[in-house]
Computed example of a mutant assay.
Amino acid sequence: MESHYIHWEFFKAIEEDFKKCSRYIAFDERNLQTYSIELSRLIIDCGSYIDTLMKDLCCCLEPQVERKDYDNIKTWHAPIKGHLSHFFDLEIHMPSNGMVFTPWKEWKQVEDKIQSPFWWKYGYNQIKHHRSNNFEAACLKNALECAAGLLVLIMCYSVHVSNPKPCFDVSQHKVFIPKNLVPTFFAPVTLFCEYETIEEFYIF
């Protein structure tokens, strides 16, 4: 199986876990601070995948740099900004409740420091390194933002790295479809890149 298909299949599996979770926690703005063991697992799963795939993407964008040099989120920022400036503005929405996320918008340089997204610094990292003292970081908001961040990353990796570009069958990949069709859980909203419409982002 081509690597980009593996990434999409992983996200589909993650999304199924979110669907199951939604039976017990209503995905509503009033519940965004609700936390649980299952949400903690989902954040770790998504964050760990982001960690690995982001390093792969950076190495593809700037192959002259060794992978070991992309050891944290601060080192990923320059290659992403230099090659994929639209990355930070990509939005993900949840059609079932109308919530919209721009997960990488806060990832920017402030003076001489790289500022991490809240869900990464105070969600994923706190759970990963200080879980016993920061269990409340495993909240619904951080979990949804983390999943949205992973989806943005997989989309960009698939389009800008995969060669040939992936071809998706809408009937098989119902999550990742143009918004004029009926989406399921997560769906891309806007793509500020060389594609004028969302339909051009997908190749059927």
Rank of each mutant, 00 (worst) to 15 (best):
N97Y: 13
A26F: 08
I50R: 09
C146E: 10
H129G: 10
C21E: 08
I177R: 01
L150M: 14
K105A: 06
P79T: 13
F135M: 03
S96G: 04
P117G: 10
L140C: 10
G123Q: 07
F185K: 13
S22P: 09
K20Q: 12
E2T: 01
K68P: 01
I73R: 06
W76Q: 00
T190N: 14
K108D: 01
L32S: 04
D69F: 01
V159A: 02
F176P: 15
C139Y: 03
L39T: 11
D69R: 03
C58A: 14
L191R: 05
F135C: 09
L90R: 00
V161F: 04
S162E: 09
T52D: 12
K55Q: 12
E111G: 02
C167H: 09
F10H: 12
S3W: 00
R67P: 02
N72S: 15
Q64C: 05
S22V: 01
K108W: 01
S162W: 00
C59S: 11
E91S: 12
N97I: 02
P79G: 06
L181T: 09
E111D: 02
N97D: 09
F18R: 09
L181A: 06
L39K: 06
K68T: 07
D45M: 12
R23Y: 07
S96F: 11
E196C: 04
L39E: 08
T184I: 09
M54F: 05
